[in-house]
Amino acid sequence: MNYFLEIFLGGLTRGSIYALIALGYTMVYGIIELINFAHGEIYMIGAFTALIVASVLTLLGFNTLSVFILALVLAVIYSCCYAFTMEKIAYKPLRQAPRLSALISAIGMSLFLQNYVLLAQTSDFLPFPRLIPDFDFMEPYAHIITTQEAVILITTAIFMTILTIFIKFTRMGKAMRATSQDKVMAALTGIDVNRVISFTFIVGAAAAAVGGVLIASHIGMINFYIGFIAGIKAFVAAVLGGIGSIPGAVLGSFVLGWTESFCTGYVSSDYEDVFAFLFLVLILIFRPAGILGRSESNKV
């Protein structure tokens, strides 16, 4: 039973990691029907920014808590700037072009950012400082769930709640929902569609950057390539849950995390990816739009 719980929590943590990244995919798709392949790179840039900020601040003698908060905030801001600029340069000029053009542009952006970080930083793995210290009261449970894992779970939960409330109850949220249903009609009713799209990119980037910082701190290492693998998995999770749907992305991420975790725990980690993708195919055969992909009202 204990083992089951450990595997369950492991899957939950992994699922939360995917969820923070999957949010960006699903929101952008919901609004402009673009699969933003460069999203994983935003996550990676967030982690790199936090690493640089944390190294500098630690040298200057800041305490752990302020290093963590400042690194997180700056990583979020920096990643948001990247996402904003990326949208303006790579996607906005292509908005009237065929959807394939925007997709190619996204893939190009992804490769560009990866190689940019590779050249500007290094191809080696870099150690990432532990920004979240181990709390003493967590010590008896450390063999089941570490402080970092708990923080990831809680942060994901808080982020989801805030996002859901935001989309349901604010003016901007309403504008986002309207834009996702019909861009032209939304513009006619006086919604600044460009602003809504930019905002969506920024929110997605913020989630990815938070994810990047927390996960890098949990894993303890980063390199320029982490965004690619995490991004692909998160994309799969978003499709699994029903791309375009926010609760779907979260659910899809947990389902993917658990599938991988339980497969490793009870079958064999050799077949981890095989089972994960087999599961994806099965779900898509029976529910082609993903688990929660049917209902239009769930679209952002």
Binding site: Y3, E6, I7, G10, G11, T13, R14, I17, Y18, H143, E149, I215, H218, I219, Y225, I226, I229, A230, K233, E260, S261, F262, T264, G265, S268, S269, D270, E272, D273
Partner: peptide, 20 residues
């Protein structure tokens, strides 16, 4: 006796399995 996926986000499940 098992293989792990290189580059996976984390290895917590396999680590639990080692412990078990």
């Amino acid at each position: 006796f098992e293989g792990v996926t290189p580059g996976a986000v984390d290895y917590s499940a396999i680590v639990q399995k080692i412990k078990k």
